[in-house]
Design a protein around this nucleic acid. Structure first.
Length: 583
DNA sequence: GCCGTTTTCGGCCCGACTGTTTTCAGTCG
């Protein structure tokens, strides 16, 4: 059943934002830090729930959500049943809501915001800037000329700060920096850490970690990088800078014998680290980025991350899993998933050629795929109603078959070329080609490209129609999101997953870093339900075939194992699966 | 405000850096 819009006062994200916002205000109000942490934790849980919170609410299971106890469950209940929240309204009369924007200024935290508000009457960003320019902040307790200048610098930084960085931008830049730092004298290892190492779809700042006995030359090289716009901090162990592309990067340097704890720490996530430190405490140890420390003050050093986890009685947890989504418990119980890896892949099932909007001919694409060790390539050009992409008419698809046959003969059996299509799910829910015609193709991908802003009911109905069509094998990039510019369609994912499980259609994790759709959260849901998954690049050029690792990383974040992913199947198995589906 | 194989009360991760201070508070991750 599709949950109609009118029964949904708030989406998960909206609810999450409300609690996040209250957390900020409570912080400024000076509320107990653990209370604000609780609100923030609940907000994070809601954002990453993977189920519609409205359904959880109707099922009476709100307190099953991690970090949601009696008090927060009651607040969610009030929000969902009445649309408002008395607690929040009262909070807004006590703390001006516009102070939240002041809190976004780097180096201005809740204590300073409260100080500026109570002592100078500052309630928003404009007032803060005016006060700082007028020199009204420097004489406040704990402030001085430097701190005042820092506030102005922070406001400036905020204005040029871009949204979170898409993985596709962060990854190459971070790797450039890794190469740069590797060349510094005395550097033994450089690793990417933070959310980038965990391969989140978007990352905030970049975190890098280097191993060196003497940190000084590394730090100097880092802050002295020719493209550094501003040095934000420059210490012995940690430095941070902003580059002229507005990307902030911080670098830790640790001696090699401490690299394991340091890398583990810097990789996070915060919640994962908290979980590990709790475990350490139970073992009578204190864990920091420096070392494990015994009660007598002696240290246990870890040069490798494996050693950190071994000390806690578990195998290394792959970075992509470190989100405190049950991975620590699974590791302790010896039940970590055997994650999919790049080496497992045998096929690429979603590509475009010059027949529609791709840059390579069928033969060129097949050669490139073969170069990358693939055994199966599906050519899946667009269908006709996607005019902007040069979608193919029925006649053109038939003509394409002749060319595919010729290329297949020319290239031999090193690579198997499938003729498919990416058929448009039209705004009315029907598909571009007839069922009879689809049945003739080797493989059919269905996708939404238009009408993404339709109502939840409408767009979900279209999607379910495609999923239930026996001739459709794969649903491409299900929500149609584009990072960072476009939200995905408001699909009832619960209904989508259920239908996929029933029909046996495979859902795609589109590897393009602007898509990564299914995302990690829904990939995990799909994994739990045994839904078949395919990871594809949707390549329009040779270089795009190399984006596949972003998709694999997303699958890993979704706890996916190879057997559930059809791209890992041997060609014969894949083809017999395709033949068994409605053709 | 949440949470429980040492707890239903009393915990809640830990350290680096900066600027303001003469030993520490605030911010950040």
């Amino acid at each position: 059943m599709i949950t109609p819009m009118k029964d949904r006062q708030y989406t998960n994200q909206q609810l999450s934002d409300i609690f996040q916002n209250m957390a900020y205000l409570l912080e400024i109000k000076g509320e107990l830090i653990y209370k604000t942490l609780a609100y923030r934790k609940a907000a994070d849980s809601l954002a990453d729930l993977g189920r519609d919170v409205n359904e959880v609410w109707r099922a009476g299971q709100l307190t099953d959500i991690p970090g949601v106890g009696k008090a927060i469950a009651e607040k969610i209940d009030e929000l969902l049943s009445t649309g408002g929240l008395e607690f929040q309204e009262k909070l807004h009369t006590e703390v001006p809501p516009s102070l939240v924007e002041v809190l976004q200024v780097p180096d201005v935290g809740p204590k300073k915001v409260a100080l500026f508000w109570r002592e100078v009457g500052i309630t928003n960003l404009a007032e803060l800037e005016a006060a700082a320019r007028a020199g009204k902040l420097r004489d406040l307790p704990g402030m001085g000329p430097k701190s005042e200048a820092k506030v102005l610098a922070g406001i400036e930084a905020l204005s040029r700060r871009t949204h979170r960085l898409p993985l596709g931008k962060a990854w190459p830049f971070a790797n450039e920096l890794v190469t740069y730092l590797c060349d510094v004298q005395g550097v033994q290892i450089v690793e990417v850490a933070g959310s980038l190492r965990r391969m989140k779809a978007t990352v905030g700042d970049l975190d890098l970690l280097a191993a060196a006995i003497d940190s000084q030359p590394v730090m100097d090289a880092f802050v002295g990088h020719p493209q550094v716009l501003e040095v934000l901090g420059h210490g012995e162990i940690k430095s941070s800078v902003e580059f002229n592309n507005n990307i902030r990067v911080q670098l830790w340097v640790h001696p090699p014998e401490r690299f394991g704890t340091a890398l583990q720490y810097a990789t996070g996530s915060k919640d994962h680290n908290v979980r590990l430190r709790e475990l350490a405490i139970k073992k009578g140890l204190s864990l920091s980025e420096q070392a494990f420390t015994r009660p007598d003050g002696s240290e246990i050093l870890c040069a490798r991350e494996e050693d950190v986890y071994a000390q806690l009685g578990m195998p290394l947890i792959p970075p992509e899993l470190r989100e405190d989504r049950g991975e620590v418990q699974a590791a302790l119980a010896g039940r970590l998933p055997d994650l999919i890896s790049l080496d497992d892949l045998r096929s690429e099932l979603h590509t475009h050629t010059t027949w529609s909007d791709g840059k390579l001919t069928i033969k060129e694409m097949a050669v490139e795929a073969r170069k990358r060790g693939l055994q199966v390539l599906a050519v899946t050009d667009h269908s006709f109603s996607l005019g902007v992409a040069g979608g193919l008419s029925v006649e053109e698809v038939m003509a394409q078959q002749t060319e595919i046959d010729a290329v297949q003969v020319e290239l031999g059996d090193k690579i198997r070329i499938l003729q498919g299509c990416e058929v448009e799910i039209r705004a009315d829910g029907t598909l571009d080609y007839s069922d009879e015609f689809l049945a003739e193709l080797d493989i059919v991908i269905a996708a939404l490209h238009t009408g993404l802003r339709q109502s939840r009911e409408q767009v979900t109905k279209r999607m379910l129609n495609a999923i239930r069509n026996p001739h459709v094998d794969i649903i491409a990039h299900p929500t149609g999101r584009m990072i960072p510019n476009r939200e995905g369609a408001d699909l009832d994912m619960e209904a989508v997953l259920q239908a996929a499980a029933q029909s046996g259609v495979a859902l795609e994790i589109n590897a393009h870093p602007a898509r990564l759709d299914l995302d990690d959260v829904y990939s995990r849901q799909a994994s739990d339900r045994g839904i078949l998954i395919t990871v594809n690049t949707d390549a329009h050029s040779a270089s795009e075939l190399d984006l596949i690792h972003f998709g694999v990383a997303t699958a890993r974040r979704g706890w996916l194992e190879p057997q559930q992913m059809i791209n890992t199947w041997k060609p014969d198995r894949l083809i017999s699966w395709l033949r068994s589906r409605g053709r």
